[in-house]
Write a protein that binds this DNA or RNA. Sequence first.
DNA 1: TTGAAAGCGATACCAA
DNA 2: TTGGTATCGCTTTCAA
Lengths: 341, 341
Amino acid sequence: MVTMNDVAKRAGVSIATVSFVLSGAKPISAATRERVETAMRELGYRRNPVGAALARGRTNIIALLYPALQRPATGSVMGFFTSAAARAQELGRNLVLWPISNDAGEAAALANTGLVDGVLLMEVQLEDARVEALRPGTTPFALIGRTRDTAGLTFVDVDFEASMSEAVAALDGLGHRRIAFVTGNWGDLHLEDHGAAERSRACFRTEMARRGVRKPLIVPCAENSLDGRRLGRTLITEHPELTALVVMNEHAAPGIVMGLRDAGRRVPDDVSIISIGSSANMAGMADPPLSFMRTPGEELGRLGVDAIIERIENAGAEPPAVLLACEMQPGATLVRVRPGD
Amino acid sequence: MVTMNDVAKRAGVSIATVSFVLSGAKPISAATRERVETAMRELGYRRNPVGAALARGRTNIIALLYPALQRPATGSVMGFFTSAAARAQELGRNLVLWPISNDAGEAAALANTGLVDGVLLMEVQLEDARVEALRPGTTPFALIGRTRDTAGLTFVDVDFEASMSEAVAALDGLGHRRIAFVTGNWGDLHLEDHGAAERSRACFRTEMARRGVRKPLIVPCAENSLDGRRLGRTLITEHPELTALVVMNEHAAPGIVMGLRDAGRRVPDDVSIISIGSSANMAGMADPPLSFMRTPGEELGRLGVDAIIERIENAGAEPPAVLLACEMQPGATLVRVRPGD
DNA sequence: TTGAAAGCGATACCAA
DNA sequence: TTGGTATCGCTTTCAA
């Protein structure tokens, strides 16, 4: 491995000078800079980030912490990751996806070792032990998602309340009142711990109550098409009065449509469906293609990186907090309720 | 930050002793070990991996290089990543997903800075500049996939030939002869550069030729349901004689089924389908659920990690090379051809 | 069984 | 504008 020393020797300067050329921290005469750069080129020198990290206390690496070992990841994580990585690169940082157990200690351990400049936490729960473990440390962190109490925390999250309100309003505008809400079933987590689940359920209840429905139907479903199909069948059989479904479970949604059809209901003629928090590709897996509200995953990826970098560079400032609603996309599963229904 | 020095002082020993206790590299008396461990606990000490990496020349980090910026990732990457991460953890390593451009220099740069002990390359092309860039370096690397010439390389890959042969044999056994092959359309890459595509196409041709079909139909399709649907419609309209499809494009497959139905063909009564290299979840998105051959993604993740670690620890040995075929899974889209067809 | 000390590669302060 | 050098935190050799 070529070191700074090699470069310095070859250029006939001190390693301090080489370092200054590299970092631009001090003015260097054009002549010496030229000599140093030539030496670097000839030797194929690359700065060793480990040495630099030890000396500077910074690595330029941001870790996107994902509890992959507990919750095998879905495709939406990748969209997020991709845009976050691109944004980090634009800003001269490295963003890596770091699998981690949900064990609070592990996150704090990684953060406080100096291996990374900051961390982004995914799959945040309402009461999240990792957040409590990171708080006392000095390494900046930001959440993708939110805990219940967000005071003093940096986060970017989907605005589930706004999305849900818009979805219910859309159905309401088409005359639907008998609406069920199908949520996800977030792995081993207790549903109550999952922010997206709890916030959207609460909002669904509120919106329905405002429209005179006191105890609206809310059912969880595992996140895959087969369970979706099963659920679609039983749900409509047990609750034949339903005219519409709000689904927040993109992987189950296409199966649900099949299940309804299995049970003799047509979509959307008999039952309208709106899928909240979906990708276009998943919505297109259903027949007919689902009317859906797009998860702003890519936007959040970018914003999450901006937020953590802001935190790293400007620790004193007000912590950024961003909420972004899903955006309604056209589809073929939303129609006016039939008169008489 | 608590350092080894703090621990040493508190325990009344030298930092060398602390290091030995931590690494177990040298025998330490029970009494001293006890004192050191107590001090570590009381101070909440954690070894700084940056310092350790600099001293040892090893970081215990393995990078899974993914060209995320060129080719936004699909869900199957995550399955692979998850199992690889779990395996790495079992073996005391960290596996991180590192986005990288397909630019050869970038991969080599990362590898040769000492930041990672080894790299796993994903989305390998038949002629892959990254491989050539990594070859001369000293950092071990392994491929997920294969280049055309694999001499001296460590790799784990799907055995497309075996999988394709089995798929065609299955259709053949049911009397199908008029079979088309729908491949993926790997982003901006020229199809010819993609190993999976080329190997499976060649194998399809061979298998069909052996059965007396000289120029079998092979069509690419973008990897999403909407394009799949479009393709299904036009394909069967332009080639009404087809009785079966081999699909190697899990995201398009459910759409293809819809497209066939749009064109008035029933699946599987009129057209049988087998999806090669799919996950159960995607196969279940179709109605009826697809007969498919499962991508051994999780197995490959584990084996890939084993391979790169073997390479790191035992640089002299024969480079491991692993091929794993997809495994046939039951579904509802495979039936005997109708007499007369 | 333990300790002193020489690195690992780079940064940055203090002098010159 | 440049150089000498202490320093970051840990590993490991050599001596004791």
